[in-house]
Design a protein around this nucleic acid. Structure first.
Length: 365
DNA sequence: AAAGCGGGGTC
DNA sequence: GACCCAGCTTT
């Protein structure tokens, strides 16, 4: 079943007043709340996808300082954009944001569209981000349904559909279209999200402080902890690699650029050698790999450093090997020799940033 | 409709 | 550990 409440005993105008007054009284002072510039709102919303506010703040500041206008971002090198994004995760967001901004510069004279059709057609802008930009930057009464909003409204309306499904997001959008006020849709949407972040939390909802308690079906029945309903995800699949920290006689390290699609696309890494399983002879695999790829004498030693890194769907187990090469072999395409100082110019995923740190600490070689 | 896609915070 | 986070794109 979907909604277990009817509209007859739901007071829309009172709900909106309670929500919006609370928002103006208790909202956090966040950098992207000091502007209505649609481009800045857009940047902040993309960074905030699946990412918490405190994590985003310094990235946002650096980003708009480096790319203050859509034109600045459109004309930037992709690698410079990825470097700013380094460590934030979901790197396709950065590549799609730049592509989207290029569309805006090309097709809309650098002005972010203020209508749903056009803005939804832009790369990287989906239903949530479209609604957020339209409501916050342009005061349009459009829903912006994120995880916070689904949690809050699933409790208010006792909705037990699986929020992991696309269809459920559309159900919440339908509800919001019936409630959202013409007068201040920005405060309405942000208020729902702010309550989700500060009050209506996943584990410990602070219902006694909630301005919506008087409107909330879950609070009335004391079943807050049972909402929202969400299907469990499958655990991450383990993958094992040997990682080669290969240094030449000039003291440079071999790094390579990852493929342009898939996991950590276009980021840089130390060469990774896939292992069939943790039981396979790692040293042998490393030797085979080096013989095949470098055709030059290489000394290898196991430095007994292991790094684990968990993604949403994968768990990497990395075993580090240090190598020194007698003569300078030429770097292949998408490979590069870089000194320790130069490594800082390249965007690395966090798992390989950890390796750079180990090198700096003198723990490898 | 389901899977792929990061990294960090919280309990 | 498990769960969550101002989700979107691809398959």
């Amino acid at each position: 079943m979907t909604m277990q409440r009817d509209w007859e005993n739901f007071n829309i105008s009172q709900f909106n007043q309670d929500l919006i007054r609370w928002f103006y009284k208790y909202k956090r002072d966040l950098p992207w709340r000091q502007t209505k510039n649609p481009y800045y709102i857009w940047v902040s919303e993309v960074m905030l996808q699946q990412t918490q506010v405190d994590t985003v703040i310094p990235y946002y500041q650096r980003f708009i300082t480096k790319f203050p206008t859509p034109q600045d971002l459109a004309s930037a090198d992709e690698e410079a954009v990825l470097k700013i994004w380094e460590g934030l995760g979901y790197y396709s967001r950065a590549r799609n944001l730049q592509q989207g901004v290029r569309e805006v510069v090309e097709n809309y004279q650098g002005r972010v569209p203020d209508n749903k059709n056009d803005i939804l057609s832009i790369k990287g802008i989906g239903p949530y981000t479209a609604g957020a930009v339209l409501s916050i930057a342009y005061d349009r009464p459009e829903p912006a349904v994120d995880g916070n909003v689904m949690r809050v409204l699933s409790r208010v309306f006792l909705i037990d559909d699986d929020i992991a499904k696309q269809k459920t997001r559309r159900l919440f959008e339908e509800i919001i279209y019936r409630i959202i006020p013409e007068s201040d849709p920005s405060a309405f949407n942000q208020g729902l999200m702010e309550i989700g972040a500060l009050i209506c939390k996943p584990k410990q909802a602070k219902c006694e402080q909630c301005p919506l308690a008087a409107h909330c079906g879950a609070y009335e029945e004391g079943v807050q902890t049972e909402y929202p309903v969400k299907k469990k995800k499958t655990p991450p699949k383990p993958l094992h690699f040997a990682v080669l920290v290969l240094k030449n006689q000039s003291g440079e390290y071999l790094i390579r650029k990852r493929p342009e699609k898939g996991l950590l696309a276009k980021l840089w890494e130390f060469p990774m050698i896939p292992l069939e399983s943790p039981e396979t002879s790692i040293e042998e695999s490393v030797r085979d790999y080096i013989e095949k790829n470098y055709s030059a004498p290489v000394k290898i030693n196991d430095v007994n450093i292991n790094i684990q890194h968990t993604f949403t769907h994968l768990k990497w187990h990395l075993s580090l090997f240090a190598g020194s090469i007698e003569q300078r072999i030429s770097a292949e395409k998408d490979e590069q020799w870089a000194s320790l100082g130069q490594l800082e110019k390249f965007p690395f995923p966090v798992s390989h940033q950890k390796i750079v740190d180990k090198i700096k600490q003198g723990l490898i070689s």
